[in-house]
Design a protein around this nucleic acid. Sequence first.
DNA 1: GAAACGCTGCACAACCTGTCCACTCCCGGA
DNA 2: TCCGGGAGTGGACAGGTTGTGCAGCGTTTC
Lengths: 157, 157
Amino acid sequence: MDELDGRLIDLFADDPRIGVLEASRRLGIARGTAQARLDKLAATGVITGWGPDLSPEALGYPVTAFLTLEIRQETSQGGHDTVGTHLAEIPEVLEVHTITGAGDMWARVVARSNTDLQRVIDRVLETPAIVRSSTVIALATQVPYRVRPLARAGLSG
Amino acid sequence: MDELDGRLIDLFADDPRIGVLEASRRLGIARGTAQARLDKLAATGVITGWGPDLSPEALGYPVTAFLTLEIRQETSQGGHDTVGTHLAEIPEVLEVHTITGAGDMWARVVARSNTDLQRVIDRVLETPAIVRSSTVIALATQVPYRVRPLARAGLSG
DNA sequence: GAAACGCTGCACAACCTGTCCACTCCCGGA
DNA sequence: TCCGGGAGTGGACAGGTTGTGCAGCGTTTC
């Protein structure tokens, strides 16, 4: 991961429709080089995929909320996985992490409306493994999810 | 967004290297149809891009943390934007939202290590607009960020 | 009914990808 | 100092794709 890799990634991020050949032309390098760089970035896991990015809003889910869940810790670790599995079955749950704080988890959910959010939350709470939960709603997005600045900043990674 | 669109998206999500032609073959439809569907999905904003997905871990930032920030509300709304701008300049800040709770914001940050996280947090707190902050560290990921299930669930969107 | 819309099949030129290969640099180890 | 490995360059080839355009056709809608 050096400066050239960074510029390569930037090119594709700005204009995903360009191919390897066009990218190599813009960078003034040989096509084989660009191709080798991309292959290596994929091999090292820096580039995890090229799939289409989907917008929950455009899919009809404009409401985003963050749930903090307190998990019942009967089994040493089973609780989290149980809840994780449960949450994974709910389409509106986009992301789930275990976080610091005894038995706490965090989830990102979306819904069709604030009213609909209640339905989603009810579905989340269907499992008895969740002891308590709190919800905050995202009102605006100051910085949308991004990783590119990191790629530029941490050129040694 | 109908069932065919969903399958189209699934195809590309599973195997981004396939082209429109191959996708149309697998779905048993004409190439023009697949192409038109994709164009429309992009036009309606459902598909926001095809850029490379980058892994913060692979870039050398394996630690993820969530910050809840309380913002000083001097100006009616300026506070949030000020902080948002400040945070946008920090590469390790991957995402920032305004959330419910008077003057609260939420940010996702990554760091090279738990020690390095302190540096990042210090940088975040450099602005006087932040009154208070709390940090939770993500220990594990039960459900990685995903949108695909939504695309299948909400076929009416 | 007639128009609008979406899908199918097909055709063409232009272009890109996957691969190979030979040659050149440059750096660290023996 | 010499050698080998790693990385980049320039070029070549076959095969496959994309961007477009067009005519035909069944279905939905006013």
